[in-house]
Computed example of a mutant assay.
Amino acid sequence: MKALARPFRIDAGRLSSFQPSHALRARHGIVLLALFLASLVTAHAQGIDPAGPPSALATLVEWMPFILRGFLLNLGMSLLAMAIATILGVGLGMLQLSRTRFISAPAWLVTHLFRNSPWLVILFVVMLLVPYELELPGGGSFIMSDWLKATFAFSLPVMANLSEITRGAIVSIPSGQWESAESLAFTRGQTLRWIILPQCVKRAIPPWMNWYALLAMATPMASILGVREAVGNAQAAMEAAGARPELLAPFYLFLLLLFFVYIYPISIWTRMIERKYAVET
């Protein structure tokens, strides 16, 4: 069987070893919790004047549901962006391996363009260029709210990295499996669908989870452009409470705790799956 386009072999067991979520440890959460509690004690001590405004602790408790609603938007944006990135990234990765140069070259270009572009720049470009209202072919229209545009923007760099992970996982499958499938009269599409891709899933799950963790941690950047997620809501709450300096530490440490509690289990689960699906080389 002819070789795949631009073949090279990689260690699939190392596909996700570069991700920073591996550095997370439980002690980091304990330190973060201790800092959060210390900030509450300090801020409470600064606001015990009965004639003054409520303490930082009371202010945080009052605005906590508002911040949590924003955090739910972070989670929704991350899940939707990851779904879009997965669909587009897997397709783009397979297009990179096409034997037709007119297909593989544009797929390679798109992959490396978004893979090597700053996320914040992509966010600004999408937010400014995508119109607020899209005209549909049937005569209707679709409103592209800011959070939807931000979600699509976040999906683009993740799509590019998932494209490269998909391509790497496919080319890491031993060539003998392609040759065996060809000897059994499988077409290239059948070989890819029934033999190669099922094996790639195990190899790609750990880096896929790592990229989701990175995506979830990147969603607060949307607050720069006015999306009212957790960080945006926290900033609005502090402004409504008088923009007092003693509010900064407890509010932002509370945000750090929210994301840590959500991301850290994903990090643990990723390491467990990596050990379970480790590829022998």
Rank of each mutant, 00 (worst) to 15 (best):
125 V>P: 02
125 V>L: 15
125 V>N: 05
125 V>D: 07
126 V>H: 10
126 V>T: 13
126 V>G: 09
127 M>I: 13
127 M>V: 13
128 L>T: 15
128 L>K: 12
129 L>V: 15
129 L>K: 14
129 L>T: 15
130 V>D: 10
131 P>W: 05
131 P>K: 11
132 Y>P: 01
134 L>F: 06
136 L>N: 09
136 L>A: 13
136 L>P: 04
138 G>K: 03
139 G>V: 12
139 G>H: 09
140 G>Y: 08
140 G>K: 12
141 S>Q: 14
141 S>K: 15
141 S>Y: 11
142 F>M: 15
142 F>H: 13
143 I>Y: 15
146 D>C: 01
149 K>T: 09
149 K>V: 09
150 A>E: 08
153 A>S: 14
154 F>T: 11
154 F>G: 05
155 S>N: 08
156 L>W: 05
157 P>N: 08
158 V>W: 01
158 V>R: 03
159 M>V: 04
160 A>F: 00
160 A>T: 00
161 N>P: 00
162 L>P: 00
165 I>Y: 04
167 R>F: 04
167 R>L: 07
167 R>G: 03
167 R>W: 04
168 G>W: 00
169 A>M: 04
170 I>C: 02
170 I>P: 00
170 I>T: 02
171 V>L: 14
172 S>K: 06
172 S>P: 02
172 S>L: 09
174 P>K: 09
176 G>S: 14
177 Q>R: 12
178 W>E: 08
178 W>A: 03
178 W>R: 14
179 E>C: 09
179 E>S: 10
179 E>K: 10
180 S>Q: 12
180 S>H: 09
182 E>T: 10
184 L>R: 11
185 A>F: 09
185 A>T: 11
186 F>K: 05
189 G>I: 06
191 T>F: 01
192 L>A: 13
192 L>S: 10
193 R>K: 15
194 W>C: 07
194 W>N: 10
194 W>S: 12
194 W>Q: 10
194 W>P: 00
195 I>F: 06
195 I>R: 07
196 I>K: 05
197 L>T: 05
197 L>Y: 03
197 L>H: 01
202 K>L: 12
202 K>G: 13
202 K>S: 15
203 R>Q: 12
204 A>M: 15
204 A>V: 04
205 I>P: 03
205 I>S: 01
206 P>G: 06
207 P>W: 03
208 W>I: 05
208 W>T: 05
208 W>P: 04
209 M>Q: 04
209 M>C: 11
211 W>A: 03
211 W>Y: 15
211 W>K: 01
212 Y>R: 06
212 Y>E: 02
212 Y>F: 15
212 Y>M: 09
212 Y>T: 01
212 Y>D: 01
213 A>W: 01
213 A>H: 02
214 L>F: 07
214 L>P: 01
215 L>H: 02
216 A>D: 00
216 A>N: 02
216 A>Y: 01
216 A>Q: 04
216 A>I: 11
216 A>S: 07
217 M>I: 14
218 A>N: 13
219 T>S: 08
219 T>E: 02
220 P>K: 11
222 A>E: 07
222 A>V: 08
222 A>W: 04
223 S>G: 06
225 L>P: 01
228 R>T: 15
228 R>F: 11
230 A>I: 03
231 V>P: 00
231 V>A: 10
232 G>H: 05
232 G>P: 05
232 G>V: 07
233 N>Q: 15
233 N>E: 12
233 N>K: 14
233 N>A: 14
234 A>H: 06
235 Q>A: 10
235 Q>Y: 06
236 A>L: 15
238 M>F: 10
